[in-house]
Amino acid sequence: MDGGPFEELRVLQVGAEAVVRLVRWNGLLLVAKTRVPKPYRRPEVDHQIRTERTEREARIMHRAKRLGVPCPSVVHLELSTSTIYMQYVLGDDLRSVLSRREGDIPSIARALGAYVARLHSAELYHGDLVPSNVIVQRGKPYLIDFGLSGHSPDIEEHAIDYHLLDRSLRSGYPEIADAFMESFRSGYEEVAGPLRTREVLERVEEIRARGRYVERVED
């Protein structure tokens, strides 16, 4: 990339899928997210997954940014190593905000609901909407980790975002899950409108019921 080399600062996170490093480039602090090869997968499968997700993450993040949804700006993409270089968003992840019960949680939830609805209105979905993928900076939620995101008009994909957030709150923060999701819903509804919101919530119920015992495909 032009403008000199990246200066490695430190490893921020070693996740199940990717290694996230803090680097400096031309005086700017950037995050470098590298999807690491998984030796348990067939090489073709591994390559397909890493390339698809890296490309998709950069593309959808860029579109989300243009919609005014707070998320890191993509600075550079390096497909040969499945690495994205992006803006470093300083803040706490939503998990720690929720555990410490700090800040105006209803307002964070409402803003998050509105941003997610904005993505959905543009036929985008996040695909991994859980508290660890939300960074709170001065009370404003930023969405990160778009690796499982995508473009689809299908209400199912939008309902899955809603379902994932709801379930992860219920398993991780059962005492505040209801209040959080209520604020989230009101923010969502402000953007998506009551009709669409109801449709999405009906589909969420359907997904939940489906998981209860999966029907077999019969001949």
Partner: peptide
């Protein structure tokens, strides 16, 4: 606690149905 599950059909069902 359920950490994750299928959103539609089961893995075994997918492979069985394909084979059949």
């Amino acid at each position: 606690r359920i950490l994750g599950e299928t959103l539609d059909i089961a893995a075994g069902n997918c492979l069985d149905a394909f084979g059949i």
